[in-house]
Amino acid sequence: MNIAIASGKGGTGKTTVAVNLALALEDVQLFDCDVEEPNCNLFLGFELEPVEEVTCLVPEINPDKCTLCEKCADFCKYNALAALPNKIMFFPSLCHGCGGCSLVCPAGAIEEKLRSIGRIEKASSQTSLKFLRGILNIGEAMATPVIRSLQRHLDESRPVIFDSPPGTACPVLAVMGCADYCVLVTESTPFGFHDFLLALEATRALNVPVGVVLNRDGLGDSRVEEFCRAEGIPILLRIPNDRMIARLYSEGIPFVKEMPDWKEKFEDMFETIKALVCKSTGVQ
């Protein structure tokens, strides 16, 4: 079972929920898919070892064969190739690696080579929690291929928790699209609610069942719970607006470690999610 922890708004507590949930359970996997800002390990403190380099195929133009016909530059939809009077210029960070330029080159002057855009790492220690994360290199634009590479390391036999990036754009959909259940973390403020609705729209477009974790409960008003009640969206957990929790977070300490009664609350939440997934798929 794959559970994605997501939210429209940044800073609502996705990583907090993902890490604490993973630590409260036995024998699960945690995948940090927020490859632009992978923060889970700041709270886990694992030694990490590289698993693979995430690469993208990019063109290499052989100037001896190139006839400067400009077909490659005309074809490229991403403006990664520009035809100058005496050469073709290549802008690696714009390239999506579609391979179109080498396909259309009539002179066979374009070969493709691998370029690193990020990497996948895993926790080297043997614990009951299997942790992997992806990191996008700074200055690189394409988060989605890193997320896809990360997802290839899934062990289908155990539950997995995905810490998703914020927002509702392509990288988020790549995470939600792989999930059997999506937990949306939000707070009951105008910003929180507005961004929650955007994320909800995304889960509905993908037909993923969804539940809510209300973070900083007590802050703001009751607009999120009123909405959830009206729409029949389960509120799985409430995390109070507690300075102690905020303080532990700031130190990088997952609060299930310091406040043991929360372990049970997260376990309960997981059981509820399991039941809800069975209900929505109709299988045991």
Binding site: L136, A141, E251
Partner: peptide
Amino acid sequence: PPGTGCPVMAAITGTDLVLVLSEPTVS
């Protein structure tokens, strides 16, 4: 936007000054 990817790069290129906000947490 949050992050360091494509939308952030588009938001800061060619600006005169960037203010980066932080909070005193590990993240």
